[in-house]
Nucleic acid binder design. Structure first.
Length: 422
DNA sequence: TCTGGGGTCCTAGGACCC
DNA sequence: TCTGGGGTCCTAGGACCC
């Protein structure tokens, strides 16, 4: 019998901000995406005011002013570090932990079935709160999809105190029968529309759905969801993170960009950041895609394009990747458009240890490797961006805006919070 | 004025081959 | 006049996730 727990941090980004500024407790607060564009996290109080996930910040400006909602730019250095603390805590409490996203983990509880699962969930919740300051919810059930549902209710029903063991919940039938299909993990807007048109409105009905119908219209993924709802585990715990398929670095600009030199500077930045991620993962890339696009929300001439170039030999060298990206950029750039976003994607990744030597390769590989190692070492010790490539330039008006960023409390010495006596 | 970023997996259809 | 069929590989696009 399979058994899973899903541990999920409540309102994760907002909760991270609260750990370092407890005055925010009980207040409406939101965290915005890059460029202060959209709402990506909301406190319960902000949710109660009707602020939806993903709404553009400018659309709720009045609401923010009227209710004095606290606004934060996203601070990924802080959230990444807090996430790491949560996952390390979980590893001390549970033998098999799958880090599913920045704020969620699945635990494999096979062999725990004769324990007090609710008590186990409560101790996880209490320990994480004590060690990290973050509130989490715990859902327990026979499959990952059902554990997601258990977590959904654990979060929303105050009387559960953040923990629900669905395997022993007396109202299990009612909970599944009242859960709308669009709340089920794996059912997006398109599938939900199809299901509702076919009279399937809730989790119980979906678990009884005709397999041929589901297979035909929602594919093997939909079928898997149906079976998981029936308690048949189709998704095992994944302990080792699967090797990456690609690495993308892209950003919207702080303002429209027409000038090639500015796009060039942005591309250099993205390519070097992507190369750093590549080396961190001990990978090399065989090909690279560079892309750019105008603002699709604007009523003005639109243009988007992408160019994929293969590297003569798989590499993790920033200089080579930058040069290749710039070559691609030149072929897709067009004058006279107001560009909003561009990016660099590294694809066909392979482990750095598996590179094939190429007879016709004339670069001095070893020298490049030593240079990159030195670069990474300095940036790691002195802070990101201490050393960067000259082509980036000093003025970077295209850079995204972060008007409400909190300090990097946990990852920069000069931002350490100070405890004052008295 | 202002609309995120980074992923995965699946499927359909075309190119190509025998 | 006749005009296969099946396999594989690749790519673009869709759907979904956080």
């Amino acid at each position: 019998m399979s058994l899973f727990a899903l541990v999920d941090c409540n309102n994760f980004y907002v909760s991270c901000e609260r750990v370092f500024d407890p005055r925010l407790e009980g207040q409406a607060a939101v965290v915005l995406s890059n460029n202060d564009g959209c709402v990506v996290a909301r406190s319960n109080e902000a949710k109660a005011l009707g602020i939806a996930m993903g709404v553009p910040a400018f659309e709720i400006r009045d609401l923010i002013a009227r209710h004095q909602i606290q606004v934060f730019s996203s601070n990924y250095a802080l959230y990444g570090d807090m996430s790491h603390r949560v996952m390390e805590t979980l590893r001390q409490l549970s033998p098999e932990v799958e880090v599913y996203s920045i704020d969620e983990a699945f635990l494999n509880l096979v062999g725990f079935a004769d324990r007090d699962l609710g008590g186990y969930g409560r101790s996880i919740r209490a320990t994480i709160k004590r060690w990290t300051g973050l509130p989490v919810s715990v859902g327990i059930a026979e499959t990952k999809t059902l554990a997601k549902i258990a977590n959904f209710y654990a979060k929303r029903r105050a009387e559960l105190n953040g923990v629900l063991d669905l395997t022993t919940a007396p109202d299990r039938m009612d909970l599944l029968a009242t859960l709308p299909v669009h709340e089920i993990w794996g059912v997006g807007p398109s599938s939900a529309r199809f299901l509702k048109l076919n009279g399937i409105d809730n989790a119980t009905q979906l678990s009884h759905a005709n397999e041929q119908l589901i297979r035909k219209h929602l594919g093997v993924v939909g079928l898997r969801t149906v079976r998981e709802l029936r308690g048949i585990a189709c998704m095992p715990i994944e302990l080792a993170p699967p090797s990456k398929q690609g690495i993308t670095v892209s950003r919207s600009f702080g303002r429209p960009v027409e000038d090639f030199d500015e796009l060039r500077a942005a591309t250099v930045t993205y390519a070097s950041r992507a190369a750093e991620k590549l080396r961190q993962g001990r990978l090399v890339a065989s090909a690279l895609t560079v892309f750019l696009e105008t603002n699709p929300f604007k009523d003005e001439p639109q243009y988007r394009n992408a160019r994929t170039l293969s590297l003569p030999m798989a590499t993790d060298n920033s200089l080579e990747l930058i040069q290749t990206a710039l070559r691609g950029l030149k072929t897709i750039y067009r004058r006279g458009y107001r560009f909003k976003k561009s990016g660099v994607m590294l694809v066909d990744l392979i482990p750095a240890t598996q590179v094939q030597a190429n007879l016709f390769d004339r670069e001095d590989r070893d020298r490049g490797r030593r240079l990159m190692a030195a670069l990474d070492r300095i940036n790691d010790r002195m802070g990101d961006g201490t050393l960067q490539f000259g082509a980036v330039g000093n003025r970077q008006p295209w850079r995204a805006r972060f008007d409400h960023r909190s300090p990097q409390y946990t990852t920069r010495w000069e931002a350490l919070p100070v405890a004052k006596a008295g």
